[in-house]
Amino acid sequence: MDKIIISPSKYIQGEGALANIGEYVATYGMQPLVIADDFVMGLTKGTVEASFKEQLVEFDTFNGECSREEINRLIDKTDSVKADVIIGIGGGKTLDTAKAVAYYCKLPVVIVPTIASTDAPTSALAVIYTPEGEFSEYLLFPSNPNMVIMDTAIIAAAPVRLIVAGMGDALSTWFEARANMTSGKTTMAGGAPTRAAQALAKLCFETLMADGLKAKVAVENKVSTKAVENIIEANTYLSGIGFESSGLAAAHAIHNGLTKLEECHHLLHGEKVAFGTLTQLVLENAPLEEINQVIAFCKSIGLPTNLHDMGVKEIDRDKLLNVAEVSCAEGETIHNMPFPVTAQSVLSAILTAHQLGS
């Protein structure tokens, strides 16, 4: 199997980076269409317009759902204004929509996250929903975004829960990469992991351990520090390249199973992934020292370490067996683990992880 690593063509990060967007985007086009929701538009439009100076910039308000209908509406808008580059500013659904519009219009896309809650901004993937907000399909792109711009001042001003959830998502990266490397399964990049991708995945974990708590404290005070800069890079770039080019395993599959528990519907993606990571470590019988390190980290920044933390009041084994069965569905990434996994073994790991993290 060939080794493959994929990534955005350019990744830019810095305090006030949005103010330079006009200069950066000029590489790709001179008539951009900017897509953002109402709140983000109000937050960023003035900065974007000032950066492009006299250049013509079209803006369109994202309607809140990354659906086929919204994508088609924005494709029509792109054609009508003769845009030659798409810019998405905001959260995951806005960014996924921008990626999809650019893909269908065969245009470059620039991604500007305003939060660091997941590693999705760098990926060659969008999640498509129905207009009512139900999952519809994954849309895979032949390449990653042309550019990702992270303005750390904007991200540091977002609610602290979002960057903490991003750390929960990033926490799984190294452990899933390690499992995938051992099993030799194909990664989302379509091949075996490179040493570079593995190194980024490990650096992601090391950065979380070194700077996670410091970054949380800084963001609670709505300031950007060196630790915040490091964690934004870990949550977005290191984790993004790490998961896509090194592979997913049990942690994300268990996250998918947890979406079937109504009590967990209020949780963010990374909050569920954090418990999925702890469960994966139990599943593979990782050293207790490593498990305790993960538990201590999660507790220090406010990530859940047991089912009660996630809102599950009663431990119902039948419901948890359903979670385990969904986690083990055919095609799920849990089968990238370097040993056979059954629903019963996942249930056992969930219950043990819950007890260890309580």
Rank of each mutant, 00 (worst) to 15 (best):
I4K: 08
I5T: 11
S7Q: 15
S7L: 15
I12E: 05
A19V: 08
V25M: 04
A26G: 15
G29Y: 09
A36H: 03
D37L: 12
V40Q: 10
L43N: 07
K45L: 02
E49R: 03
E54I: 06
L56E: 15
D60Y: 04
I75R: 13
D76T: 11
S80D: 12
A83F: 11
V85T: 05
I86A: 05
G88S: 01
G90K: 05
G91Y: 03
T94Q: 11
L95M: 04
D96F: 09
D96G: 00
A102Y: 00
Y103R: 02
Y104D: 08
C105G: 06
L107F: 15
V109I: 09
S117A: 05
I128E: 00
Y129G: 01
P131V: 03
S143I: 15
N146P: 05
I149N: 09
D151A: 07
A157Y: 08
P159D: 07
V164E: 00
L171I: 01
S172D: 07
S172M: 11
F175N: 00
R178H: 13
R178D: 09
A179H: 08
M181G: 13
M181L: 09
S183F: 02
G184D: 01
K185R: 10
T187Q: 03
M188N: 09
A189K: 14
G190W: 14
A196V: 08
K202F: 05
F205N: 06
E206G: 08
M209G: 01
D211I: 10
G212W: 00
L213V: 09
V217N: 00
V223F: 03
K226W: 06
N230D: 07
N230T: 01
I231K: 02
I231V: 05
T236L: 00
I254T: 05
H255V: 07
C264A: 15
H265V: 07
H266P: 14
L268N: 05
H269E: 02
A274M: 12
Q280G: 10
L281W: 14
L283W: 02
E284F: 00
E290M: 12
V294Y: 15
T305V: 14
H308Q: 07
K313H: 05
E314T: 12
I315E: 06
I315T: 11
D318I: 06
K319G: 06
L321T: 05
E330D: 08
H335G: 13
N336Q: 05
P338Q: 11
P340G: 06
L347D: 02
T352P: 03
A353D: 13
